[in-house]
C-alpha cells in the first residue's frame, strides 16, 4: 500500500524500510522528466526535507522526504533513464529507500483514497 504526502511523494513501507517516489499526478504536472538527482546512500533526511531533484524541460522541482530516515539505497536506473518517472512513477521509478526513523510519522500521510480526495480539492 502506498501512502502519499501533500507534496505528492509516495512511500511504500516494508518493515522498517520505506521506498519513496513521486505520484502519477506529480509526473503529469511536471511533464517530460529529463534529469534526476538522487541522494547519497547514508544521508539522513528530515521529514519534509529535500531528498532528491527532478527536472522537466522547463523546470526543476525538489522531492521532499515524506518521513525522516537514513537513505539505504537509490534507484540507479533513474539518472540514465529519467523518462521512467513519466512511464512508471508509482512503482519502477522509485527514487530511494530509507530506514525510517519514526514510524509514527507515517500516520500523518494519506492513503490512496484520501490522496485522491486531496487532489480533487487542489484541482
Amino acid at each position: 500500500m502506498l501512502r502519499f504526502s501533500k507534496d505528492h511523494e509516495w512511500i511504500r513501507v516494508d518493515g522498517s524500510i520505506g521506498t519513496v517516489g513521486i505520484s502519477h499526478h506529480a509526473q503529469a504536472a511536471l511533464g517530460d522528466v529529463v534529469f534526476v538527482e538522487l541522494p547519497e546512500v547514508g544521508k539522513s533526511v528530515e521529514q519534509g526535507g529535500e531528498a532528491a531533484v527532478v527536472e522537466s524541460v522547463k523546470a526543476a522541482s525538489e522531492v521532499y522526504c515524506p518521513v525522516a530516515g537514513t537513505v539505504t539505497e537509490v534507484n540507479e536506473a533513474l539518472p540514465d533513464n529519467p523518462a521512467l518517472v513519466n512511464e512508471d512513477p508509482e512503482a519502477g521509478a522509485w527514487f530511494f529507500k530509507l530506514e525510517i526513523a519514526d514510524k509514527a510519522q507515517l500516520d500523518g500521510l494519506m492513503d490512496e483514497a484520501a490522496y485522491k480526495a486531496y487532489l480533487e480539492t487542489i484541482a
Binding site: 511533464g31 517530460d32 529529463v34 524541460v57
Partner: peptide
C-alpha cells in the same frame, strides 16, 4: 497553452 498532450519533448 504551455503544452498539448504530446508534451514538450515531442512537440519540440
Amino acid at each position: 497553452p504551455v503544452q498539448y498532450p504530446l508534451g514538450v519533448l515531442g512537440e519540440h
